[in-house]
Amino acid sequence: MDEYAELSDEQIIEKIKNIDQGLYAIIVSRYKDKLIRYANSIIKDTDKSVDIVQISLIKAYIDLKGFNTKKKFSSWMYRIVHNEALNLIKKYHKETPWIEDLDFSSDEDIEENFAQNEVVSMVGKCLKDIPLLYSEVLSLYYIEEKSHREISDILKIPMGTVAIRISRGKQIMKKICQKI
């Protein structure tokens, strides 16, 4: 397996599709922790997050031949987890705050007030109290270290909307974290 350590996800996927299906173990090993953390940021339940990630990894394997290896595998994989998590929320009618119409631009430059590492630390502490609309974007941006483009691909929203949600999320986080 070590010989594949240097390969990108997309290269490994090509090999899984055409040569050795057992190599999917590398993908599972690379992603499981990150995906559980991400799923947990959406549904705020660790046990259910583990279930979601297991289902998502199985679904990803089943649909692997539909994945275009010219695109980024991580965005595709995170998208599957996102869908599964939202399906679970809908299924159990969990009252997770999902405020769709709160996007608005902000003139306030929060970057001046927060050092990057402070923000990361705050995201981890306050994420569970922030509406899902923003907590998910903040989690992807600060914890999973995804770019605006990748977040746009995962959530299937325009990049401008990603930037607005991050900015707005930071404002909400600032208010919430100050109370804690």
């Binding site: 299906q21 057992g22 999917y24 173990a25 599972v28 090993s29 499981k32 922790d33 559980i36 046990d47 583990v50 990630v53 297991q54 990894l57 199985i58 394997y61």
Partner: peptide
């Protein structure tokens, strides 16, 4: 549980 994910998926594939 996390370790089980890997085992469960791979055993199902095999």
């Amino acid at each position: 549980d996390i370790k089980n994910i890997e085992e469960k998926i791979l055993s199902q594939i095999q």
